[in-house]
Design a protein around this nucleic acid. Structure first.
Lengths: 132, 132
DNA sequence: CGGCATCCGGTCTGATACTG
DNA sequence: CAGTATCAGACCGGATGCCG
């Protein structure tokens, strides 16, 4: 053995966790849900720029991971509410810490920041409409 | 006005923050750096499966965002060390919370989880090598 | 209201090979 | 050791239209 330092590997669980809640839109959705049961349309309103496709896809993913539960209330018109599971609710402190950090370090509009955000689709201008 | 509830929008800063640290590989890199100055090769060892291209790209991005600083020590062979800035170090508690949560809720191997992780490239089997 | 199916462009990523 | 260049294609996500 050489004297390579003990750079232990990143905890796989941590890795999975952060990429889980870090995927596009997910953080925002989660934060919205943290406020309690929310209807589809309300979530959509709370997360500007998200499309139906993305929202429903993320929601289904979150359901699959067990962070969110979907409840269909058979009224007319139908009402669907999404709610965090315990697993989801327990993310609160983590998300809160991130929010705290963001308060301190992330400027409101990226233009103010000397540092450019990571290259993410989110940061790029929305795609131009094809026709008109 | 209808009786639409006051579903305030998600804090833009929070949104930016989480998508920042949530982008692929970033969480793992950050966590590694939390342990202190680290050399390129060490980070690579700590984050299994990351490629050179990805690592250097992420590192440059993190530098751009002001989370990481790069130091070149002109030795032979060259030595390069990466270190978190104050901004980066202050992410510690947030990352720690996530790690905590992961301990409680994320199984070691995804197979154990009834719930499938979000659809991410990371979760999918690595691409097959082209030739042998 | 609350979605899903489809089409499609472009980004991001992984593999591979090559420098200082 | 510490990267960078290039290239192909997988994947994401936007737009649209339709359904219960």
């Amino acid at each position: 053995m050489s004297e390579s330092p003990p750079v232990s590997q990143v905890c796989a669980r941590f890795h999975r966790a952060i990429e889980l809640i870090g995927s596009r839109w997910t953080g925002a959705i989660l934060q919205t849900l943290l406020r309690g049961k929310t209807r589809y349309a309300a979530i959509k309103a709370a997360v500007p720029d998200i499309t139906d496709r993305m929202l429903s896809e993320r929601l289904r993913s979150l359901e699959a991971v067990g962070l969110v539960v979907r409840a269909v209330i058979p009224e007319t018109p139908v009402r669907v509410e999404y709610e965090l599971t315990k697993k989801g609710r327990e993310l609160q402190s983590a998300l809160h810490e991130i929010a705290n950090w963001a308060e301190r370090w992330i400027p409101l509009n990226e233009a103010d920041d000397t540092a450019v955000p990571l290259t993410r689709r989110a940061d790029r201008p929305a795609r131009k409409l094809k026709h008109a």
